[in-house]
Simulated scan of single mutants.
Amino acid sequence: MSFKVIDPGMLALVQDGGRSGYQHLGVTTGGPMDEHAFDWANWLLGNPRGAAAVEITYGMLVLEALSDMTFALAGADLDARLNGDPLPPWQTRQVQAGDRLTFGSPVSGLRAYLAFPGGVQAVARLGSVATVIREKLGGLDGSGQPLRKDDHLLPVEGGVVEPRTMPDWAIPDYAEPLKMGLIPGYQYESFSAAQRMKFFTSPYTVTSNIDRMGYRLKGEPVISEQSGIISEGIALGAVQIPQDGQPIVLMRDRQTIGGYPKIGCVFSLDLARLAQRKPGDSVEFQLLDVAEAENRRMLYDRHFSE
């Protein structure tokens, strides 16, 4: 049971829940850019949470089934087609040997997740198969390579998978306005009240300078009273403000330390929504209380612990 990679497309990576416990050694976490879509792709197949799946950025991937198997697709609409017929995301499908699964360019969103029963077979490095190209870790053989032509994707488990149906409320609309919750960070007080007001009331545009390491935004500049700080650890979603005043939201493959002032940290589930935004999209920030963030996180996690 496997898929053969005919064309690897723009960027297709094996990702699991991420590589934890090594940031003090300079090793970042990796993991899915859109945690929401990744989790639901695995849920559709009844997989353990964090099971390895394929993260497809932008599209253009072409796969050929070498045997009968089941898969799940969630996240962005990348104009996926099965033997030429449209295949919307947020569902499971069965394929037979010789079937072709192809992806075009984004219709809605930017990243889709392809999950297999039990996960994708891959070689673990430092306890994870999450692919971080910069660090040469993860992927099918552990070397940090994206999917390549003639690679084979094998599920961890075989057999028939009982299909599940996505609840309507869990399917996001990637075209809706995005207002991200921000939890104040260590240097929050170094931004004056006027600068903070500007930050929370101004829309920002996603630039073309985005990747798995960070999203650079453009809009009303905000200036910290500190030009720099002693380098310190970087949390997922940290919003750095460099000297030009344009925010940088740090994502899954972020550096582990940094010396720019950080106004705060984007709530993880809002960060997943940001990962589906493309250059030119508009986003905003709103202040988020820690207790509210914890409540939202608890309610989300409950869906995958039952």
Rank of each mutant, 00 (worst) to 15 (best):
G158E: 08
A52L: 02
V120C: 10
P172L: 02
N42T: 10
E35M: 13
I229P: 01
R100V: 14
A65K: 13
G181C: 05
Y186D: 08
E284C: 12
K262Y: 12
P117C: 01
G84Y: 08
G119E: 02
I263V: 10
M251L: 07
Q96V: 15
K262Q: 03
E284T: 08
G109T: 02
L78H: 01
R134S: 13
D281I: 01
P163Y: 00
P88R: 05
A293V: 09
A193S: 15
M1W: 02
G26R: 05
L82Y: 00
E135C: 06
F116H: 01
P177S: 04
P247F: 12
A72Y: 02
F304P: 12
F103S: 02
V156N: 11
E35F: 12
T165V: 14
I133Y: 14
L217Y: 07
G185Y: 03
V54P: 00
A41S: 12
A122I: 01
G104D: 06
R273M: 13
L182W: 00
D301E: 05
R277G: 03
G9F: 14
G98L: 09
D16P: 00
D211P: 11
D270R: 02
S105L: 14
S67C: 13
D253V: 09
I229Q: 04
D168K: 09
E225R: 08
Q276M: 01
S282W: 05
